[in-house]
């Protein structure tokens, strides 16, 4: 049935829609629905889907952005596969997932289970304060942390002041510690977001479940393990999707804090996309890296959704 026909079938008086049972099954969404999603769909196709498909298309070409495009098949992907820098950039991404997703989740679960067992005064204040890092522009966050971590910065000065001068180092210039130092920034940014989402989730767990657990003699640990954690399963899945994606597509913080250095010790795929597109002038290579990254994000998030969301 066309949209016009659906509209024509709608009674003016606002009564029930009369359609013949053969055209639309009972409970089936009316096709007028497509008209409602049309504006959003057009935007989505125009600004998300079309560029995405164009990017995949470009990844098979050698192109500098203006000159002629030359079809090179899978060469761009082969170049990626052969590049040790590219492979190491994915290892760095996985390290960043630990800092962006795993550690914030563990911190938030701990805080949530503590908050849930005791009444905390001024919860709104803490919630706002913890959420603040997430809404500060990442570039500003990176500039602040670069200063904190600089060789003469507050972190090193603080360590020296409390007698731990031996631990001071040029954090962002150290081949071993630059990546964890950048990761800590991610932990700082993400923990608030994770906490707020989990707090919201924990409030919808019926208190009767906790009461039942207590009657059964559960301590704090079992209460967490048997009630809180299963109750938060969907929230945890959402949180992981958000934070893992943020870790994998991290660009701004790396760009401002280290530009991938020292050496290539903090280089990440998004930085390589930028480098290929805007420094090397190889849009094909950049598109190929971007596509590989997108596939990787999609696969990981699919796995998270499968584990967290649907299996019951």
């Amino acid at each position: 049935m066309s949209t016009e026909a659906a509209l024509a079938n709608t009674p003016v008086g606002g009564g029930r829609l009369r359609t013949s049972p053969s055209s639309v099954a009972p409970g089936e969404p009316r096709k007028i629905g497509y008209a409602y999603v049309l504006p959003a769909l057009v935007m989505y196709v125009l600004f998300v889907l079309a560029p995405f498909i164009h990017t995949i298309f470009l990844s098979f070409f050698s192109w500098d952005g203006i000159g002629p495009q030359e079809f090179v098949g899978l060469d761009n992907y082969k170049d990626i596969w052969k590049s040790p820098v590219f492979r190491s950039s994915f290892v760095h991404s996985i390290v960043l997932i630990v800092f962006y997703a795993v550690i914030p989740l563990l911190i938030a679960l701990l805080l949530v289970s503590i908050m849930n067992r005791s009444k905390i005064r001024g919860l709104t204040f803490y919630r706002t304060a913890l959420f603040l890092p997430y809404i500060v522009a990442p570039t500003a966050v990176a500039v602040i942390w670069r200063w904190l971590l600089s060789p003469d910065g507050p972190i090193n000065s603080g360590l020296t002041a409390i007698g731990l001068g031996a631990l001071t180092r040029p954090w962002l210039g150290d081949f071993t510690f630059a990546l964890p130092a950048v990761g800590v920034v991610g932990t700082w940014v993400m923990s608030g977001l994770v906490l707020v989402l989990l707090l919201a989730g924990v409030q919808k767990i019926p208190t009767s479940l906790y009461e039942a657990a207590r009657i059964d003699g559960a301590g704090a640990w079992w209460e967490f393990w048997a009630v809180t954690l299963p109750g938060l399963r969907y929230e945890i899945a959402v949180v992981l999707v958000l934070t893992v994606t943020a870790a994998l597509r991290n660009f701004d913080i790396i760009y401002v804090m280290t530009s991938g250095g020292p050496g290539t010790s903090t280089i990440v795929p998004s930085y390589l996309v930028y480098q290929q597109a805007f420094i090397v002038g190889s849009l094909g290579g950049a598109a190929a890296i971007g596509f590989v990254l997108a596939v990787m994000i999609a696969v990981i998030n699919y796995v998270i959704a499968r584990i967290g969301g649907t299996s019951s």
Binding site: Q276, V280, G281, G285
Partner: peptide, 11 residues
Amino acid sequence: MNNTSAQVRKR
């Protein structure tokens, strides 16, 4: 990595 074609310089 593909170092070949050149369009834009930075910094």
